[in-house]
Amino acid sequence: MGENIQGSFVSEKISKIRWKHEDFTEAKTFLTGSWDNPVNKITYWTFETNEDNETYPAVISSHAFLGDVTELKFISKDFFVASSSLGSVRLLQIQENPYAQFKEHMSWDFIHNFKTGDYASCTALSTFEQDIVSVGEDGRINLLTARQKKPVRTIENADSCSLYCVDFLRHSEILTGNLRGHMKVWDLRNDQDIPATTFMLSEQLKTEAVSIAHHPTQRHIVVAGGGDGSLTVWDLRHNTYPISQLNAHARSVSEILFHPDRPENLFTCSVSGELWHWNNAQKTKMKLDSIDSHWLNTIGANGKVSVVSLCTAMHKPINSIDIDRSTLLFGCDNEAIYVVKDIIV
């Protein structure tokens, strides 16, 4: 175990962890969301230094949250959206003055629910500037915008199965993944509630699509994680057949994260407690810009990509990761948060 990892036990299982990125300096604060408690919390953290000159995370403020926190996403410097397993989405602001607290600006209550009136978990959300898309176990897609209480659009029966993940491919296009591994591209300019394209996470194995991420600069490059730990890569410009498909983690892939500034670095974490760093070993950045040879296309084929574990496998699921520059955060079901410093990217 490296010296560069530091953990703190926080007395609640962490479902989501997110840096609050700063414009020209490295991030100093972050958010966590918890799950599986009767009342969960969104907590705002900073780092403090003790007498031994060790930095450790310290709570700035905490916000009670009904249901599990299922996603946290910043839409601007201090505004973020949070979704809950009780089918609600909230827009919150981190306020520093006069004292640190969260201010709720909008609340879309129970926008995911079943016909019986029971709440349905809002499983994921994605943002594009001020626009928010949420999906849930009710198979519904809600399009929201930060300033408006009423959803902009609701696609009622978007999927017959629970939706597990969603991503904005571009402003007018979203990709959803469901419990059966069905991936659907939705063109939002189309008024009809039918997907533009449907394809499978895997033709052979029916496993759930649990997470999606797109390349920060080449948004058509999409990676999806499966309930079986597999990673599938598509180049959606060309076709919907995967360009590579890997049996990666031992179990379900919890989150996939491209380094925002250095997209040749990919991070994945898993229910099996693994945390991996995928790096294009050759660092041929020039090549990246060329049209169709992103390194992800060729992972399996020529083995140019190096994959390293950033820590010994945790004995409980790692649920969430986030990176700012060379510092990575992860939250785990062992009720701890970890900071990994000095990652070479």
Binding site: W35, D68, S85, S121, T123, E137, L179, R251, S252, D333
Partner: peptide, 12 residues
């Protein structure tokens, strides 16, 4: 049982 996310962890 709560959300399917929890169910999936139990199944796991």
């Amino acid at each position: 049982s709560g959300s399917e996310a929890k169910i999936n962890k139990i199944i796991d």
